[in-house]
Simulated assay, not measured.
Amino acid sequence: MIQIAVFSDIHGNLPALEVVLQDIDQRGITQKFCLGDLVDFAPWGNEVIDKIRKNHIPCILGNHDERIAFDLPVIPLSKHSEEETIARFEAIEHSRKSITDENKSFLAELPFHIKLNYKTGGRHWNIQLVHSSLKSNETYLYEYEADEVFNEMLKDSDSDVILMGHTHISFKKKIGEKWAINTGSVGRSKEENRLASYVILTLNEKEVVPEIIQLEYPLETVAKSIEASGIPNYYASFLRNEKAVNF
């Protein structure tokens, strides 16, 4: 049996990341992977990057990482309210100014996706890690998508399991004998409970067993830290579940 832990979308929320990593370590899982979006919306972007680097956790490039690494423009999204649009611009500008040049260089060198192959007994398992899809890290895919959408991704990547983040909404969807899984978000969950979320995959010779883990963390401490920073208070209210989620 092999176990791997996969998490995504930390968004500068160091306390949430620390809770997730502690839980993974307590379970004795040594194989850890991150699906990107280390920065924006909470005050510890540099500290999150430093922890990922210090722990040698393989990580892929999220859309927020890419924007900060390459100084890309912010494109307004139609799903966002005017309030969120203004807050989003201000929060990303805060990251542009605060993320160190060394950490921007680290983000710029992250791979776009990672393909894993594990052997258990006589069986090989192919596991595809993406931020949101194989071709883009801006694609929003939810559990209600038609099976054909995920089947195509599984076929194109020649994988048994495809793991993604980006939407901040966790799910596990079995398609035949294969899986499409969203890890949810460590640091900025859009689920009602606002818990830090990650996925454990257990691999044995017969099957892959996914489990979504959701953990409490000191959310109010994070919210107050956001309010004390240069990041808009919108994101503190969001964590407290005082703001509506736009899918």
Score class of each variant (00 low, 15 high):
16 A>N: 10
17 L>R: 11
19 V>P: 00
19 V>D: 05
19 V>H: 13
26 Q>G: 00
30 T>A: 11
32 K>G: 03
34 C>K: 01
37 D>W: 01
39 V>C: 03
47 E>M: 09
53 R>D: 02
64 H>C: 04
65 D>K: 04
67 R>T: 13
69 A>I: 01
81 S>N: 12
81 S>M: 06
82 E>V: 11
87 A>K: 10
90 E>S: 11
91 A>T: 08
92 I>P: 05
92 I>N: 06
94 H>M: 03
99 I>P: 00
99 I>R: 06
101 D>V: 14
103 N>W: 05
105 S>C: 10
108 A>M: 03
111 P>S: 08
115 K>W: 13
117 N>Y: 07
118 Y>N: 00
122 G>Q: 15
124 H>L: 13
127 I>S: 12
129 L>S: 02
131 H>D: 00
132 S>A: 11
135 K>R: 14
136 S>Y: 01
136 S>I: 04
144 Y>R: 14
148 E>G: 04
154 L>M: 02
155 K>M: 10
158 D>C: 12
159 S>P: 11
163 L>K: 05
167 T>S: 13
167 T>W: 05
167 T>I: 06
171 F>G: 03
173 K>A: 02
174 K>I: 03
175 I>Q: 06
175 I>P: 03
180 A>F: 01
180 A>C: 05
182 N>F: 02
182 N>G: 07
183 T>S: 15
183 T>W: 06
187 G>V: 09
189 S>C: 06
189 S>M: 04
190 K>L: 11
191 E>P: 10
191 E>W: 12
192 E>H: 08
192 E>L: 12
194 R>G: 03
194 R>H: 13
196 A>Y: 05
197 S>A: 14
202 T>R: 15
203 L>M: 08
210 P>M: 07
215 L>Q: 10
220 E>D: 15
224 K>P: 00
227 E>V: 03
227 E>H: 13
227 E>D: 09
232 P>D: 06
241 N>E: 10
241 N>T: 04
243 K>L: 12
243 K>F: 04
